[in-house]
Amino acid sequence: MPRFALLIEYDGTPFAGWQAQADQPSVQGAIEAALARLDPGFREGARIAAAGRTDAGVHATGQVAHADLARDWDPFRLAEALNWHLKPDPVAILAAARVDEGFHARFSALERRYLFRLIARRAPVTHARYRVWQVRNPLAIEAMRRGAAHLIGRHDFTTFRSAMCQAASPVKTLDEITIAERAIPGGHEYRFTLRARSFLHNQVRSIVGTLERVGAGAWPPERVARALAAHDRAACGPVCPPQGLYLTGVGYPRDPFAG
């Protein structure tokens, strides 16, 4: 059966997360239902595999999944047909590509990239509602950068790991955390970019929630290092809400969508 990689964008607001669930809407379920309408080989019970299982309310601009189909589709026509059948769900197939059977959206990935958007202003957010985390007061960006520096590299991230995390080990290598700030009407937007081969469950949201405490002046930057060294979930700052988080890209040895 020919294997296809799919580059996917979605608004996670109406979904219970990526993973298919029997009684709740999911991104995976929406795409699988569309595939079942298109391809006779993709019957009930067939599954697609994704690079990352995003939680309820989390968005994506660069999720990658793969599917094994009976028909050898033209990739452009496959993407177009899927987008037609995905309406009105807020899910879009940005590109499809034929890949060899050794490609696996999850296990072939070399890195994942996430963006977290945080807006600080007193007036309510309107256009970006459900797509950012809002706090009321501006944050000290240089203090957050100093706190974030303690997390770069290979560490035991038990402190920043959900109690429900199923990863075999809490040890991960965080390759990048950058924090950018821009002025917006009535306040500021802070963008946190994180990059690693893989992440623990809730790791990004735990890190951003902790760094917000640093930016707000509630934590000194050095407390991030102490929290990391504690290897204790209780030492973590608050876990920030999901709506500001985006899976923005997945890296592979060869980009399947490069043409």
Rank of each mutant, 00 (worst) to 15 (best):
L245D: 09
R129A: 01
F116P: 14
R117T: 14
A218C: 00
I207A: 09
A81Y: 08
R131H: 13
E32L: 00
R223A: 03
R226H: 06
A216G: 04
H201N: 11
P14R: 04
A95V: 02
H127L: 07
D89A: 15
E80W: 15
R121E: 02
P14F: 04
D74P: 09
A140R: 15
F116A: 08
D156M: 03
E181N: 13
T126C: 00
T54K: 11
F160I: 01
A95S: 10
Y246W: 06
L38E: 05
Q28E: 14
A49E: 13
Y114V: 11
E212F: 03
M1V: 05
R254V: 12
A180I: 00
R195N: 12
E111L: 12
F76K: 14
R121P: 08
R254E: 13
A95P: 02
R77C: 04
P124I: 06
M1K: 14
D175M: 14
I31T: 05
A148W: 07
N137E: 10
R182Q: 14
R98T: 13
G57L: 00
F192S: 01
R122V: 07
C236K: 15
L94A: 12
Q19M: 02
M1Y: 10
L110Q: 15
F257E: 00
H104I: 11
L200Q: 02
P220N: 06
S206E: 02
R233V: 03
S206T: 07
Y114W: 14
V91Q: 06
G249H: 12
R233P: 10
Q63I: 06
P124D: 02
G12Y: 06
L115M: 12
A123Y: 05
I152P: 05
A234F: 08
A20G: 06
P2V: 08
P238S: 07
D74Y: 12
R43C: 01
R53K: 06
A96V: 06
G251T: 14
T61M: 04
Y246T: 11
